[in-house]
Design a binder for these strands. Structure first.
Ligand SMILES: [Mn+2]
Ligand SMILES: [Mn+2]
Ligand SMILES: [Zn+2]
Ligand SMILES: [Zn+2]
Lengths: 191, 191
DNA sequence: CCACATTTGCAAACGGTTTGCGTCTGAGCT
DNA sequence: AGCTCAGACGCAAACCGTTTGCAAATGTGG
């Protein structure tokens, strides 16, 4: 299990500070996949698509469309294109869509190494994210598949709680009391 | 709404057929709770609130705000009031909010008996819902709580798959091919 | 370098949910 | 029974994330 270190709403995280271009030049890791997948379906390798994948590559946690858009260089790409691109990347199996229950989709690039299917632990107060390593729900899927007669069973699972930092901050001191009273859309944990 | 429906707006499932009134008269089960909870916080026992709880009482699966609204008698209550009431009932701990990942909230009344915390198995093709009995994620929560330092850890978990009926229906015969190409908001299973 | 199908930007549309506000009502009190 | 007023409601408009129609821009195979 990883450490409670992580991405607050929009700040922190391993932001790119070394000065190389994340543009149309192939990045260090998997940009190979992008070209292959696209070419294979006679789709095009465009600047926006490469840039978006690059952004996801640098972030360890799921990002929303807006966050991705914000991470892009100003005139680099339209928000609508970000939405379209993520659907494409999702369909191509290069990114995974996550739903933390707050009505906003989040995406994470699927990394080559073992880290495939996994889940998260999200702080309901500051939105810090912890990546969880293993998933014990696979066994469940099998049992459910047997017992229900359903097929191709999958699942969505996320954990929520109060991170160490927010535990200390006495009630009222919290950065974002989860928007209470105002917008009703906090992570709305259901238990 | 563009999602497939199962628990169709008003069809299927143990619909109430015995002829008693589900109106302002206290129903057989828990209406007691409603009055108590409300009174305790100097809130009011209104017609809409009772009617909404009654609707939830008769349905075995989670219902959306619109479905609840539709199940109500015509001029009985405004849709906005349904939304407001469900937030209230949720805060009072009388109903549980579920999120099947299609951008629409669903609610289920918390029944007295053992059936407290639980999850669902949803058909990605016709949206049929199966209630799952036990939850194996509780143990997980403990481990996660220990390893992460978080507290008050909870989780959201739902399973998805193809129900027996939809398995037979050869591709193309399916009622709602998950709205492909059109609205992009199908149950969007992420896996 | 061309022709053309795919993409993009822009702005409008969408759908679920929330909210401001004037009116109505439940319920404690006289 | 009436009186009173915080709390509810109805209605319509506002919100917000997301999708989409369309004309202009651009990647690609030939
Ligand atoms: Mn992750
Ligand atoms: Mn249920
Ligand atoms: Zn899992
Ligand atoms: Zn559970």
């Amino acid at each position: 299990m990883t450490t409670p270190k992580s991405t607050g709403n929009t700040s922190c995280h391993t932001h790119c500070t070394h000065g190389h271009s994340h543009d149309s030049a192939r990045a260090p890791g998997e940009p190979r996949d992008l070209r292959d997948h696209l070419r294979r379906e006679s789709l095009r390798v465009t600047g926006p698509r490469q840039a978006i994948l690059a952004v996801l590559q640098e972030h360890p946690h799921p990002l929303t469309n807006k966050e991705i858009f914000a991470a892009l260089r100003p005139g680099q790409c339209d928000l609508a294109t970000v939405y379209r691109s993520l659907h494409l990347l999702e369909d191509m199996g290069l990114v995974t869509r996550f739903d933390f229950g707050d009505g906003v989709a989040r995406f994470e690039i699927i990394r080559g190494d073992a880290r495939g299917h996994h889940h998260h632990l999200v702080c309901t107060s500051c939105a810090t994210i912890v990546e969880l390593e293993d998933c014990l729900a696979r066994e469940w899927e099998e049992r459910i598949t047997r017992d229900s007669g359903f097929k191709e069973v999958t699942h969505k699972l996320e954990f929520f709680g109060l991170c160490p930092t927010c535990q200390d901050a006495k009630p009222g001191t919290r950065r974002q009391p989860q928007k209470r009273a105002t917008r009703r859309r906090g992570p709305s944990i259901s238990v």
